[in-house]
Amino acid sequence: MQCETVKVVHQDEVQGGYRLLWLDAPGIAPHVRPGQFVHVLVPHMEEALLRRPFSVYKADGPVLQILYKGVGKGTRTMTYLRPGDQLSLIGPLGNGYPGLSTGRYPILVAGGYGMAALYLLARALPVQGVAFFGGQSASDILCVDEFEALGWEVRISTEDGTRGERGIITGVIDAWWTARDADAEPVEAYACGPNGMLHAVARRAMERDWRAWVSVDRNMGCGVGACLTCVLKVRSEEGGWAWKRSCKEGPVFECREICWEMEEAG
């Protein structure tokens, strides 16, 4: 982990408001593991105090890429960044995804820019399985060519039916699961996306004996474990629950660790 002043190399719109930001971050980029994030101090936004966390999409040599959408005041301000602009980055942060367990078959499940957060993992895993990408509309389906180029089979759904099957992605996952040989290898799932999607994956994982790693999305403050903003309830060894920091012990948790019933209530 370090705090580095980095330089914007390039920025452009990919599609539908999703943007790709290339940063020259020689101190941080080479150390990023799949599923980790960086904490960005958005320049020219004095009324906002805190940094904004972003998953790393790609890290190649000294350059890392962030895929984001201008939806809040931080991300909208980021859309104005130009090549040569400087910004402060803390990273890499968080635990990231673990590797594939021996004998398991990997699937990826992502919604929206969660797809970008899974790219480094897709590149690192020794086996390529199926990637399930869901979104509201065709413009929310990202990076498909990239995953296919790595050897992954990509299955898509959109709620408006403009790409892939109409509906939510769990329907596509369920159809795939039903058609699958009963004696095929057990599944190891890696998911990133909205919390409702993560919970849906978790329910299936628990019913079907999958191992499932979910990357949770929580409001975050410091990013390094000090402010205790981003906590969530996980099961403790004594049978109760304890807060864990999604920035430090997470953002990736095995789905059985999370007290989903308390999350829903909260």
């Binding site: 009324e47 906002a48 805190l50 929580r218 409001n219 403050g221 903003t229 906590v231």
Partner: peptide, 18 residues
Amino acid sequence: GNETPRTVEVASGLINAI
């Protein structure tokens, strides 16, 4: 400590109830 959300960013400040 408290339930979440525990902090909220406001103009020129942060309100916390950790």
